[in-house]
Design a protein around this nucleic acid. Structure first.
Length: 630
DNA sequence: CCCATAACTGTTTTT
DNA sequence: CAGTTATGGG
């Protein structure tokens, strides 16, 4: 980043363009967050009330950083008078709450995650007596998502042909289920408010007058619904300020369409367009490599990042025999860097798939190198966390069948499959002992409900894990059990921040534990994460592992369009590094228990030869494996 | 109904 | 390989 207060002329131009539509095309490390936060500060300085300003991001991490930077050196801004700075989903939720009645909802909705949402689709497929293989629930869910991302509501589903008609039927049933329980999936949080604005002029105008200055970060990641939402909100005052970089568009699989950046000029012919090309992060060596790789993409707007930083070190290539040696080499190199006084927190190991982290973890563990995993199996998706949250949800909302189903027999209380179907199928004849089991369960929930009304969330959770026998159930003496219990304790700790259960649930549905906790505890740990989750971050030293065909680019992304996205991913990975960049690959690697041989990634050939050097291997005596990069 | 074991499957990225 | 689902004996 460039020094705190100084803005270069382009940045200044962007910040000072406070009126009218503005598109900032900002390369990696060119200070795009800074431009947004400085502009917000300037607006407020000029007397624009904070309530009239919003800034939308895609991740909580980005929103948090933006908030912090807006407050910074601006302590005179009272905390309760801050602009809305948050994710699209948080903004959507806010609008949903404010308009619950208009949308025919009570306002006590539950946000469901991808897992639960797929479960509901599965139920729907089964209820329609369809073949679960032919109509794979997660694929169906993906289809439904694509519709919603394109602003199509269920009633408008008009797919033709056998498959299409059935898809609409599945969606219909899914919609019925979610409506009945006031469930909202992630897509609904954008779709519903946007459609409301499209059909209700009054509501639209209300929001247009309320939010007169709109900022959108990572504009290349917007999908059609998000694009429309920001367009509608800004249509009246036309103060829309978007920042994006097509070369960093890596979410098309989730419905994002970077062409939204390209069409900005058509939407607003008078838009001011500013390109930021000076990079304040990486050395010229790293940038030259990044530019050389990304130039191979056809779908882009030419742009050339440059820097004043002259690099001393070339990019190091490490060729290993297998993933274990690759990991050892990384560990060995990390130790060397540590001796060279590079703090661990300034190092990151980046990989294409989460599965790759294991080998790295094992090597780091064996060398006593502290690390932390960013992302990974997400906290709130862990079984024990979901179980406990299901109890909380059921306590809050007796209608919540997905939660009831989840914990009815967790821990085991003699309510097996047959009895469960009887309950949900409302079959009357129950044996006395069955009656009793159900009564006991409902009594348990009633008791929890009463307790929840009297206690704070964290006290309630402590009570609940005891009372339900959940603690005994997971603490089974195994290492895994201990791990699980630790997660539960972490959840309880998180709940301390919340005054009531409703707030707690809302918080856990939109945030991940990684967002809740301080990113770095100061003890200095090496960062491990996927390339996707590294976007927006920077490190002194970056290791990109698994530079192999099939892994990166991934086998499932080899057609022309996907390949360009893989290349952008490579671009993102490279541009995380400030001064040291390592690329590693393994000749053989274990993938689902099988050993396979991979060729070096085609991306490696796109790096200019003169920027590369081969790193000696660990262990150095092993002899170099026979891999030659053409 | 419960638990253990066997069989199976699906493994890219995530708000 | 690991996590989930199907199967079968207790």
């Amino acid at each position: 980043m460039n020094t705190e207060n100084s803005l270069n002329s382009k940045q200044k131009e962007a910040v000072e363009a406070t009126e009218g539509p503005v598109l900032v095309v900002a390369g990696a490390g060119a200070g795009k967050t800074k431009v947004i936060t400085e502009r917000i500060k300037l607006l407020m300085k000029n007397g624009v009330p904070p309530e009239e300003i919003i800034a939308v991001t895609f991740t909580n991490k980005a929103a948090g950083e933006m908030k912090a930077r807006t407050i910074e050196q601006n302590s005179d801004i009272k905390k309760f008078r801050l602009p809305f700075i948050g994710t699209f989903h948080a903004l959507g939720l806010l609008m949903m709450k404010e308009n619950a009645k208009k949308l025919g909802l009570s306002g006590r909705f539950t946000i469901i995650d991808e897992d639960d949402s797929i479960k509901l689709v599965k139920e729907s497929v089964l209820e329609l007596n369809l073949d679960i293989k032919q109509f794979d629930p997660s694929r169906m869910k993906h289809q439904i998502s694509s519709f919603k991302n394109k602003l199509v509501e269920q009633e408008e589903c008009a797919e033709e042909g056998y498959f299409g008609e059935i898809l609409c039927k599945i969606w219909q049933l899914y919609e019925k289920k979610t409506k009945a329980q006031e469930f909202l999936d992630f897509d609904d949080l954008i779709l519903k408010p946007t459609r409301l604005l499209m059909r209700d002029k009054n509501t639209l105008e209300k929001y247009q007058n309320r939010w007169r200055y709109i900022h959108v970060d990572e504009y290349q990641d917007t999908n059609e619904a998000q694009y429309m939402l920001s367009k509608l909100l800004s249509a009246k005052h036309r103060n829309i300020f978007v920042v994006g970089d097509i070369d960093q568009a890596i979410y098309s699989w989730r419905g994002a369409d970077f062409r939204n950046v390209l069409s900005f000029q058509q939407d607003y012919p008078d838009a001011k367009i500013i390109t930021l090309e000076e990079n304040y992060r990486s050395t010229d060596i790293i940038l030259e490599a990044a530019n050389a790789v990304i130039i191979n993409n056809k779908m882009r707007v030419p742009k050339n990042l440059w820097t004043k930083k002259t690099g001393r070190e070339k990019i190091k290539i490490m060729v290993a025999e297998d993933e274990k040696i690759e990991a050892e080499t990384v560990a060995f190199e990390i130790l060397t860097l540590k001796r060279g006084r590079i703090p661990a927190l300034e190092m990151a190991v980046l990989y294409r798939t989460n599965a790759q982290s294991r080998a790295i973890e094992e090597a780091l563990l064996s060398h006593n190198i502290a690390y932390r995993i960013v992302g990974g199996v997400r906290f709130y998706e862990r079984r024990e966390i979901k179980d406990l949250l299901a109890y909380v949800r059921l306590v809050q909302n007796p209608q919540d069948e997905i939660s009831r189903k989840r914990i009815l027999n967790v821990p085991a209380r003699g309510i097996g499959k047959t009895l469960a179907t009887k309950i949900f199928g409302k079959t009357i004849p129950l044996k006395p002992e069955e009656e009793k089991k159900i009564k006991d369960f409902e009594a348990l929930i009633d008791d929890l409900r009463k307790t929840s009304a009297e206690k704070k969330p964290f006290e309630f959770l402590r009570y609940a894990v005891q009372k339900t026998g959940y603690r005994r159930y997971i603490e089974d003496g195994t290492e895994k059990g201990m791990d699980r219990w630790q997660n539960v304790e972490e959840l309880i700790a998180i709940s301390r921040k919340n005054e009531d259960l409703e707030e707690f649930l809302e918080h856990v549905s939109l945030f991940s534990a990684e967002d809740v906790y301080e990113p770095e505890d100061g003890s200095g740990k090496v960062n491990l994460m996927t390339i996707h989750s590294s976007k927006g971050l920077e490190f002194e030293a970056v290791f990109v592992v698994g530079m192999e065909e099939g892994l990166f680019p991934h086998v499932l992304s080899l057609d022309a369009t996907d390949l360009e996205e893989e290349r952008r991913l490579c671009y993102v990975a490279i541009t995380r590094a400030k001064t040291k960049l390592y690329l590693s690959l393994a000749a053989r690697r274990a993938i689902f228990g099988e050993r396979i041989s991979n060729m070096p990634s085609r991306f490696l050939k796109e790096f200019p030869e003169h920027l590369l050097e081969y790193q000696e291997m660990f262990p150095p005596d092993g002899g170099l494996p026979e891999i030659i990069i053409e």
